[in-house]
Amino acid sequence: MIDADSMDGACRLEDRMTLAEQGHQDQSRRRPVVLLVEDEIMIRMADAESLREAGISVIEAGNGAEGLAVLESAAVLDALITDINMPGELDGLQLAALCRDLRPGLPILLASARLPEAGDPRADRMLAKPYAFSELLSAVKEMMGNAWQTMKDRRTS
């Protein structure tokens, strides 16, 4: 582990990093962290970059298995955004179900060009593709609710 006394300059730099995964006690001062699971590289790149510009730390995963590895890890997460239709053994609906078990209470946004008409109990929000980035950001903020506002307030105070 990092020895805070012996790494003065480096720790200052670390303070400016995500803080998402660093085990800091004051978690409320860190940026919100979203796991974005999307197999379309151009969509994932654009969404990730826009979310980062909005002050969110984004962990990018290219398929359901990669997303699951992050859910199973110690990485701090505040929300999951996942595409539904992805190649591989794990689609977005299955990933959402596993997320409910692994990380109860973690807000989940499901996105797809073909959303289930009846909705899905695993999702806190659903977003039809193609969507505007403003819709995505609004949905993320809404489902994070008070947690978003608290982080925003404390980071700017």
Partner: peptide
């Protein structure tokens, strides 16, 4: 200032 160990520590924690 940079210490590559920071990245390794972060990965290990995650």
């Amino acid at each position: 200032p940079y210490d590559p160990q920071l990245v390794l520590d972060q990965i290990r924690r995650m």
